[in-house]
């Protein structure tokens, strides 16, 4: 097995974790990342739910593990094609670079939903409508949240399910991590601006993680975050740049209008941009949501529908950091089995 070569596509946390585990097992591993840095989306996040820890510390420790285990990391290289070449695979990058491997692990991650598509929410039109991604980036860069007028917001509305569970935008699945992201961000706002009222407009609170419900409790008890069950129909900018939103308080059965200083849209996760390219020239397929399809959702989650090509992390479906890392480790087990069971 030791002379086998695995190419890992995508140097997010899934790719980094899998690459280092495989290398420690003695395999030759090339980790191919299209950006100048590894770490993927975590490079943009300020703090991680559920423990408010630093994504930077996590990414750095994964980078050290990757390096120390002897992974060959290639930067600024985007893979556009995986083609079978006999028993091996040929990977092509845009700049004509080629890689050869005995097995491929696709860890190309997810895309953030483009909130301008949901035009009734005014993203890109109204300065005080931002996304959860913008929130993380701003907090990381400036450590504070201001309205476009430069003032401290006194009222913020956080909108769940933007770009998820919505047939109108073509995404009927749940993105899984945005409910808890919203609660985390609500707590952060409340800690930063204790006088600011924060409202979460949700449809269902999907707090599946072991620590998630306690954050919800904390948000209500300690921070007085208001949770309103109703989905936004639209947002409109007023002359003073504040935002008027319309929803139904479905538990009261009453239409509701509210004016807030800022709106934060909890944007969902979509299949990664290169997914449609990567499945060409091989037998890989996508599931009904456009994410990479597993050979079996129960017992072969990391196996694609093409023998020899495996998958890890959010290229398969939305997941949080800890699940992504566990999922990456499970992918390495499947790859090792694949080599062990294959006749030389």
């Amino acid at each position: 097995m030791n002379n086998k070569h695995v190419a890992v596509i995508g140097g997010g946390i899934a790719g980094m974790e899998a690459a280092s585990v495989l290398a420690r097992q003695g395999l030759k591993v090339t980790l191919i990342e299209k950006q100048a840095n590894t770490g993927g989306k975590l490079n943009d996040w300020d703090h991680l739910f559920p423990d408010f820890s630093s994504p930077e510390v996590l990414v750095n420790s994964l980078a050290t593990k990757t390096k120390d285990s002897g992974v060959n990391t290639v930067y600024n290289t985007e893979i556009s094609r995986i083609e079978r070449a006999g028993k091996r695979f040929e990977l092509r990058a845009n700049q004509d670079a080629r890689f050869y491997a005995d097995a491929v692990l696709v860890a190309s991650g997810f895309n953030v939903f483009d909130a301008t598509i949901k035009e009734e929410y005014g993203y890109g039109l109204f300065g005080n409508v931002i996304t959860s991604v913008d929130f993380e980036k701003r907090m990381k860069k400036h450590g504070q949240l201001h309205t476009i007028q430069g003032t401290d917001p006194k009222r913020v509305a956080i909108i769940h399910c933007v770009g998820s569970r919505d047939a109108k935008v073509g995404n009927t699945y749940c993105s899984k991590v945005c409910c808890i992201t919203g609660i985390k961000q609500a707590i952060e706002i409340s800690e930063m601006l204790p006088d600011c009222e924060v409202f979460c407009f949700y449809m269902d609170l999907r707090l599946y993680g072991s620590k998630f419900d306690s954050l919800y409790l904390q948000a209500q008890k300690r921070h007085k975050i208001q949770f309103i069950r109703g989905r936004l129909s639209e947002a409109a900018e007023r002359a003073d740049k504040s935002i008027q939103i319309k929803a139904e308080d479905t538990l009261q059965g009453r239409p509701l209008r509210m004016t807030v200083d800022m709106v934060i849209l909890l944007v969902g996760m979509e299949p990664g941009a290169s997914t449609s390219q990567l499945i060409q020239k091989n037998q890989m397929t996508v599931d009904e949501n456009g994410f990479l399809k597993s050979a079996n959702v129960h017992c072969a989650r990391n196996q694609s529908t093409q023998e020899g090509i495996f998958m890890a992390g959010t290229a398969i479906c939305p997941m949080a950091v800890n699940e992504t890392i566990e999922n990456a480790r499970s992918a390495t087990t499947e790859i090792i089995h694949f080599f062990e069971n294959r006749r030389p």
Partner: peptide, 19 residues
């Protein structure tokens, strides 16, 4: 899925006991 968007956008819901 009981989300209430239709009621939120509905002009009749603004004026009547209508949901």
């Amino acid at each position: 899925m009981n989300c209430g968007i239709c009621t939120a956008i509905c002009p009749a819901a603004e004026f009547y006991e209508y949901d």
